[in-house]
Amino acid sequence: MELTTVWFCLIAVLWIGYFVLEGFDFGVGMLLPMLARDDRERRVMINTIGPVWDGNEVWLLTAIGATFAAFPEWYATLISGFYVPVFLILIALIVRGVAFEYRHQRPSVTWAGWWDRAVIFGSYVPAFLWGVAFANIVRGVPIDADFEFTGTVLTLLNPYGLLGGLVTLSLFVTHGALFIALKTDGEIRGRARALALRLGVVAAVLGVVFMFWTQALTGNLGTAVLFVVAAPALVGGLGAAYVGREGVAFTGTFLAIGLVVAGIFVGLFPDVMPSSTDLANSLTTTNAAASPYTLKLMTIVAAVFAPIVVGYQAWTYWIFRKRISIHHIPAAH
């Protein structure tokens, strides 16, 4: 297998890891105003992701860094063409990260309320815009012979792109509700499970429409197979939530999100960014790749450090695996 193909697959794995892990903590942030009845319950929800949210973002940083190093032409066209949504995502992630760290610095209810709004904003924006961005990559965007994006922000706000945003948002919020049900106890656990069922129905409907539309665009058999498996994974997860098996339910949404993202990358290959202007202008794993020496060096580095990072993150999840509830949260002074 050529190293360009290897790195395309590795970048796909990084994005899959990012969406299935960061997806649930986006969901937790979006659900703050829906599930929590008071400040102690909001603190419970935030504490479920407190030890892991920043580790989840490592997958994004690694995916973007790997794209820059392995496929610099793809990185340049993507970041310049999608500058506005990427900038908004970056601002949202910064605001969200600051909110987690600053929320508890003062006992004021007003202070905490504003940082809660920052968490909500910082969760909704990337949850929606990542779907818009990836849907447009699959659909194709206007790229000229110099591999430069020639469209505008409005080019990205097409029906398929907006549907992609709604799909990721609905899947992430369902994923987050099931994570809360898995990680908490008491009343909030029951409310999260019930809400996950209602949200999951919406996510399933939007997901089916998106999968059929994507299959019509790509016509890829591998994509079709992955999508066919993703649908029962989501439905099975909702069924497990209905009977109170939160672990199985969370696994179902975990697999569904991962399979959908995998299907998108399978449908793209060997392109990394199709051109809607002229297929000859499309960026591929060949014309967007770095030099063979760079790819060889990156492969050695990845082989050494990737298992360490994955192992450390798995250890973190194991250490913080227990449920929490409001009796773990001291009353405010």
Rank of each mutant, 00 (worst) to 15 (best):
F269R: 02
T214R: 06
T251W: 12
V260D: 03
G247K: 14
F212W: 01
E246K: 06
L221H: 02
V225E: 01
A262P: 04
G263N: 03
R245T: 05
G247W: 15
I257K: 03
A249Q: 13
G239P: 01
G263H: 05
V248K: 15
V228W: 03
A216W: 01
G222P: 06
G237R: 09
G258W: 15
V225Q: 15
L268A: 08
L226D: 00
L226S: 07
Y242N: 10
T253G: 13
T251M: 09
V209P: 01
R245H: 10
A249C: 14
G239A: 15
Q215T: 11
V228Q: 05
G236M: 03
R245Q: 08
A256D: 01
A224S: 11
F254K: 09
L226Y: 13
V260R: 00
A249T: 05
G239C: 11
I257D: 00
V235H: 02
L255Q: 11
A249F: 02
V235I: 09
G244P: 13
T214G: 13
T223M: 03
L226N: 06
L259R: 14
T218I: 03
T214K: 09
L238W: 07
A224L: 05
A262R: 03
A216F: 05
T251I: 15
A230H: 04
E246C: 03
V225W: 15
G222Q: 09
I257T: 12
Q215I: 13
F227V: 00
E246A: 14
V235T: 10
L226R: 04
G244A: 11
L238P: 00
G219M: 02
V243N: 15
V235E: 05
G236Q: 05
L217T: 06
L221C: 14
W213E: 12
Y242C: 00
V243Q: 12
A224N: 00
Y242W: 08
W213A: 05
G244L: 13
T253R: 14
V235Y: 00
A233C: 05
T218Y: 09
A240Q: 06
L226H: 07
L217W: 08
G252R: 11
F265H: 02
F254H: 11
V261M: 04
P232H: 00
N220M: 14
G244R: 14
V261W: 00
F265Y: 01
V235L: 07
F254V: 15
F254S: 15
V260M: 14
V229C: 01
F227R: 05
L226K: 08
A231Y: 00
L238S: 10
A224D: 09
L238H: 15
L226Q: 05
